[in-house]
């Protein structure tokens, strides 16, 4: 192989390496763009319905309100009782005996 041919071969190898490197850099840049996009997108609200979740999730109430009928008068006494179990649904009872 002459010196001209060897120089041309070395040049081709260098260019191939360069293009491969810049290809990797390009993929990395695209990945960085995607990662930054993902970081910038604000989180969706938890109550927003999705395709799998057609039924809206009921919001838990910290307390339940029970209207206890008064035996002495018609005025109801409102008692706020702490919700003691997650299975208990909020109860709102009104009325008089």
């Amino acid at each position: 192989m002459s010196s001209t041919e060897s120089r041309a071969a070395a040049r081709d190898r260098a260019l191939r390496t360069l293009h491969l490197t810049t290809g990797i850099v390009t993929v990395a840049a695209m990945g960085a763009t995607g990662a930054i996009t993902g970081a910038l997108v604000p989180p969706q609200p938890a109550a927003a319905p999705t395709s799998q979740q057609s039924q809206p999730t009921p919001m838990p109430l910290p307390h339940r309100t029970i209207h206890v009928p008064s035996t002495s008068s018609a005025t109801a006494v409102v008692v706020r009782a702490r919700r003691n179990a997650s299975t208990q649904a909020p109860v709102a009872t009104t009325g008089s005996s």
Binding site: A29, A32, T33, G34, I36, T37, L40, V41, P42
Partner: peptide, 19 residues
């Protein structure tokens, strides 16, 4: 705000470094 807006911002950031 839409996904396009975030892509606009991210391409601007990486594009600035590329420039």
């Amino acid at each position: 705000m839409s996904l396009l807006w975030e892509v606009t911002r991210s391409t601007a950031m990486v594009g600035t470094l590329a420039l």
